[in-house]
Design a protein around this nucleic acid. Structure first.
Lengths: 109, 109
DNA sequence: TGAATATATGAACACTTATTCATATATATA
DNA sequence: TATATATATGAATAAGTGTTCATATATTCA
């Protein structure tokens, strides 16, 4: 059975619309930084507050917030507030799948 | 059954090693440009020579070669020469999967 | 061999990005 | 209310990126 996405990939002589390609590029760009990937690796095991993330990384809390903003904008992470803390988690299973496939791709040497 | 990659994602308190995260980031970076994605969308339907790719894109042949070099370096595309033409194609199914998952992610709005 | 064609490469440049620092906003607590 | 804590934001800056232009390399064919 052909998935919707696979069907879409074949639409049109030039392939996907410029708009969709730009959106895909933006999503991949959001995953293309080691700091953001480290954040996602931490979130892979469950939700974490911003400060907790910052404690596990080598960058400032400010940098973590900036990166979370990027991940948020692309629906890669969700968040909810509890008191003055903000807990982040992975947005959906697509994100999990994409991370795992890419890890497999890396490990296949 | 837990995949190897999934198991790997949980290894260690800090998650994945810095080296693996950097490699993943490089792979995603290779996918994070509209021109390169358009190349991959064309290759999704089968192999294409460099000039053929350039004819379908809005950038110079030089730019296409530069981008193919990046995709080659990360094992995202394969190639073989036939006479003076060089035919490129997608390297493996991980690449197909990653592209499709991301497209699904985009289309889920 | 010489000309034409296909692809690759290096330099230069405009544009983008990840970080820190300083500070703002929001919430809890004494 | 005043203070402390958690997070977010804007400005500045150093480093990285995608493109074109010019040119090199490789292959075919007259």
């Amino acid at each position: 059975m052909m998935m919707q996405a696979e069907a879409q990939f074949r639409i049109g002589e030039e392939g996907l619309s410029e708009e969709v390609l730009v959106q895909m590029a933006e999503s991949f760009k959001a995953l293309s930084d080691p700091t953001r990937l480290q954040i996602l690796a931490l979130l892979f095991t469950g939700e974490h507050a911003v400060g907790d993330l910052a404690d596990h990384l080598d960058v400032s809390q400010s940098a973590v917030s900036h990166q979370l903003r990027i991940l948020r904008a692309l629906d890669i992470v969700r968040y909810h507030k509890e008191g003055r803390e903000v807990y982040y988690s992975l947005a959906d299973d697509h994100v999990r799948d994409i991370l795992l496939r890419t890890l497999e791709h890396i490990l296949d040497d």
